[in-house]
Simulated scan of single mutants.
Amino acid sequence: MSRPTVVLLHGVGLDRTMWEPTADLLADRFTVLAPDLLGHGRNGPAPAGTTLEHLALDAAAGIPPGSHIVGFSLGALVAQYLALHRPELVATLTSVSSVCRRTPEEREQVFERLRLAHTDFDAAVSASLRRWFAGTGVGAEWVGRTEATLRANDVESFRNCYRVFATADADLAPDLHRITVPAMAVTGEDDPGSTPDMTRRLAAALPDCGAAVVPGTRHMLPVQRPEAVAEHVTALIGDSTHA
């Protein structure tokens, strides 16, 4: 009997390496895939006009049917799109540090970050690192690796993908109720962007979705608390298989 496949989709400006701590915890039970999204890592740049559909269909080319999809931040929006439009690929859906139905104030905050990425990319990177890691106790090696990944981005490609991240939750919102696969939404208690309120909104919008808030954590759950992410993914897959 073949092992279930778990597909890990990363956040904007990052690459597959952010999943290493979580993937190591899952690899003894599952076949783990971590493709780079369009515009990231080993994939090609994301051109002007890139949409969530472009990112999702590019990712879909490497996803076997019936996979357990785990998306982080931008990757969570890609995963939700796949659950809506390519449901044959998605057996379960785990959204980690996902935005959902931003309020006007929350939308203005993310557009302010997008404007900073256009006017001062280096400052935008530094602000992201503070927002993700300040006070978390994550080691300097991981912070440094993340910084190097962010600064290595093609800047225009990054901006094109960040615009998708800033807008796609509004595009997805009217159809979230159509995602019927077993799902889980997980975020950090102290995440200032993908807040606990957003996780609860997402869980309420999906017909079969639980919500979990990990105490004492910020945005980069797969690095700060990979065991929590792995536990929720494993529990969701186990529950769905049993059902």
Rank of each mutant, 00 (worst) to 15 (best):
M1Q: 12
S2Q: 13
T5I: 13
V6E: 10
V7F: 10
L8F: 08
H10P: 13
H10M: 14
G13V: 11
D15V: 12
T17Y: 01
A23P: 05
L25E: 12
A27N: 08
A27P: 05
T31L: 15
V32K: 03
A34V: 13
L37Q: 13
L37E: 04
L38K: 04
G39C: 12
H40M: 13
R42P: 00
A48Q: 13
G49C: 06
T50C: 09
L52Y: 12
H54K: 08
G62N: 05
I63Y: 07
I63Q: 01
S67L: 07
I69T: 02
I69Y: 01
V70G: 05
G71P: 04
S73W: 07
L74K: 01
L77M: 15
L77E: 12
V78Y: 03
V78H: 08
A79R: 04
Q80K: 01
Q80G: 02
L84T: 02
R86C: 14
R86V: 06
V90W: 04
V90Y: 08
A91N: 14
L93V: 10
T94H: 02
T94C: 09
S95K: 01
V96T: 07
V99R: 14
R102W: 00
T103I: 00
T103G: 02
E105F: 01
E106M: 09
E106D: 10
R107V: 03
E108V: 11
V110P: 08
F111A: 12
F111P: 11
L116Q: 14
L116N: 05
H118A: 14
D120P: 04
D122C: 03
A123R: 03
A124K: 00
V125W: 00
A127C: 01
S128P: 06
L129E: 05
W132I: 07
G135Q: 09
T136G: 01
W142N: 05
V143G: 07
R145T: 14
E147P: 06
A148M: 09
A152K: 12
V155Y: 00
V155M: 01
V155I: 13
F158Y: 15
R159W: 04
R159E: 05
R159P: 04
N160D: 00
N160A: 07
Y162P: 02
F165K: 02
T167W: 00
A168I: 11
D169C: 12
D169V: 09
A170F: 01
A170G: 13
L172G: 06
R178S: 12
T180Y: 03
V181D: 06
A183G: 12
M184L: 06
A185I: 07
V186Y: 02
V186L: 15
T187P: 08
G188A: 02
P192D: 06
P192V: 06
G193M: 11
S194Y: 01
T195V: 13
T195K: 13
P196K: 13
M198Y: 06
M198P: 04
T199Q: 10
A204R: 14
L206T: 05
P207S: 08
D208V: 12
C209I: 05
A212E: 10
V213I: 15
V214D: 00
P215H: 10
P215C: 09
P215A: 14
G216N: 05
L221F: 09
L221C: 06
Q224H: 08
R225T: 11
P226L: 07
E227H: 05
E227S: 11
A228D: 09
A230F: 05
A230Y: 07
A230M: 08
V233R: 02
T234Q: 03
T234A: 14
A235R: 15
L236P: 03
G238I: 03
D239L: 12
S240A: 15
T241C: 01
H242N: 04
